[in-house]
């Protein structure tokens, strides 16, 4: 190829280079966004403007917040990310569901308590309505050893029965 033939080619290349000066380094924001979203954890939204990535949303731990930012920074330079603004908030995890609060003392429940207590000597149980809450409770009385006292409380708890053990005395 002669120099003469090359001139128009060079001119065209030059023209393109001049009209699109930033072409080789700039990645479209929409492309950056897609790349970041691909590595993002749930609950985080991504906004990109001129290569600056802004993270929004809520996660449940500081570790998640940090790892979201780290995931963006770990992308290679061709991804077009210039910097990261981390606006992610950390919300406390949802409270656990309430524990079972069954306090009804139907015949079956009373039977369960009676079954458990029958092997513990010197203990009587009666069922009554607690005036403060209008709920049934088991009133346990007698004299017991420390070990039996724990056993009684475990029996009442596993039958989900509200109890009154203020009349339960320690065996001397």
């Amino acid at each position: 190829m002669t120099i003469k033939k090359l001139i128009p080619v060079l001119m065209i290349t030059g023209a393109i280079a001049m009209t699109m000066p930033s072409c080789k380094s700039k990645v479209a924001d929409t492309d950056v966004k897609a790349k970041v979203e691909a590595v993002m954890i749930p609950g985080v939204t991504v906004d990109v403007k001129d290569g600056v990535v802004t993270l929004n949303g809520a996660v449940t731990s500081d570790a998640d917040k940090a790892s979201a930012e780290a995931a963006v920074k770990a992308l290679d330079e061709k991804s077009g990310v210039k910097s990261v603004v981390n606006n992610i908030t950390v919300a406390a995890p949802a409270p656990p569901p309430p524990a079972s609060v069954t306090t009804t003392l139907d015949a079956a429940t009373q039977q369960k308590v009676n079954d458990g207590l029958k092997d513990i000597k010197g203990v009587t149980v009666t069922y009554t309505v607690d005036p403060a809450t209008n709920k049934d409770k088991a009133v346990v009385s007698g004299e017991v050893t420390k070990a039996d006292r724990v056993k009684i409380m475990q029996i009442l708890a596993s039958a989900k029965v509200k109890s009154d053990v203020s009349n339960l005395k320690d065996k001397k």
Binding site: R149, L156, A157, K162, S163, V165, S166, D170
Partner: peptide, 8 residues
């Protein structure tokens, strides 16, 4: 003595 009856 777990006497308060406030924990199940």
């Amino acid at each position: 003595n777990m006497a308060s009856g406030d924990l199940m």
